[in-house]
Amino acid sequence: MPRERVGIEGAAALLRRAAAAEPDRGRVAFLCIGTDRSTGDAFGPLVGTLLAEAGWAHVVGTLEHPCDADMYDAMRAAIPEGMLTIAIDACLGIKEEEPGYVVGEGPLFPGHAVGKRLAPAGHYSIAGIVGPKSPKPYWTIQHASLREVLELARALADAVQAAWGEPALPGSGPQTAITL
């Protein structure tokens, strides 16, 4: 399947296909790539943290233990053989009103947007679009809206839960704004 830009429903459809391929959530691993030191690049670790807090056993890459470029090879190698792996990362792309993801069956190529060439990973891949493509990708990813990145992460973590028949995560869904 080629990679395509989708909204959350398209990402949820990909996750349902993954759940149909491996219904045992104990045999599913999430490789959540990124760092906690850059707003946009925190998308993967945010998703990883939400999934770990929801009780998923095989989550690599959280805010506490990010799977950044320096740790990527070692952390990827720590995923047990035979696990269905879903790779999650941030990416830059065309920003539209609706939050978006780039999804596909097959591996993700981390670091591509910022010129890095890390080994591909994952049986399925999902990248959250955290900012527009630009001539300055590092600047763009570092200055992504934290609110938008967190909304993308929450929506994706909820879609993971739903794909395997679990309830949405606590604290997700529409957020109430407080104005001062």
Rank of each mutant, 00 (worst) to 15 (best):
P2N: 12
P2H: 13
E4F: 01
V6H: 03
V6L: 02
G7L: 02
G7K: 08
E9C: 00
A11V: 03
A12R: 14
A12P: 01
R16C: 02
R17E: 15
A21I: 00
A21L: 10
E22M: 11
P23M: 06
D24E: 12
G26Y: 04
G26P: 02
R27E: 07
R27D: 00
V28P: 07
F30A: 09
C32A: 11
D36S: 08
R37V: 03
T39I: 10
G40R: 06
D41R: 04
D41S: 09
D41F: 03
A42W: 00
V47C: 06
T49N: 03
L50N: 02
L50T: 05
L51T: 01
E53L: 11
E53A: 15
G55N: 12
W56S: 08
H58M: 03
H58W: 13
T62P: 00
T62E: 07
L63M: 13
P66H: 12
P66F: 04
D68Y: 15
D68M: 04
D73L: 15
D73P: 02
M75S: 06
A78Y: 04
E81S: 12
E81H: 06
M83I: 01
L84R: 12
D89Q: 09
A90V: 01
C91L: 09
C91M: 03
L92T: 06
G93R: 07
I94M: 13
P99Q: 11
G100C: 07
Y101I: 03
G104D: 06
F109E: 08
F109I: 11
P110D: 01
G111C: 09
G111N: 11
H112C: 04
V114C: 10
V114S: 08
G115F: 02
R117N: 15
R117Q: 15
P120N: 07
A121M: 04
G122N: 01
G122S: 09
Y124P: 02
I129T: 09
V130W: 06
G131K: 00
G131I: 00
K133M: 10
S134G: 14
S134E: 05
K136R: 11
P137Y: 04
P137H: 03
Y138M: 12
Q142L: 02
S145G: 09
L146M: 15
E148V: 05
E148F: 07
E151K: 12
L152Q: 06
L152I: 07
A153K: 04
A153Q: 09
A153C: 04
A159G: 10
V160P: 05
V160H: 10
A162V: 09
A163C: 04
A163H: 07
P167I: 04
A168P: 13
L169N: 13
G171D: 07
G171V: 06
G173S: 06
P174L: 14
T179Q: 10
L180E: 11
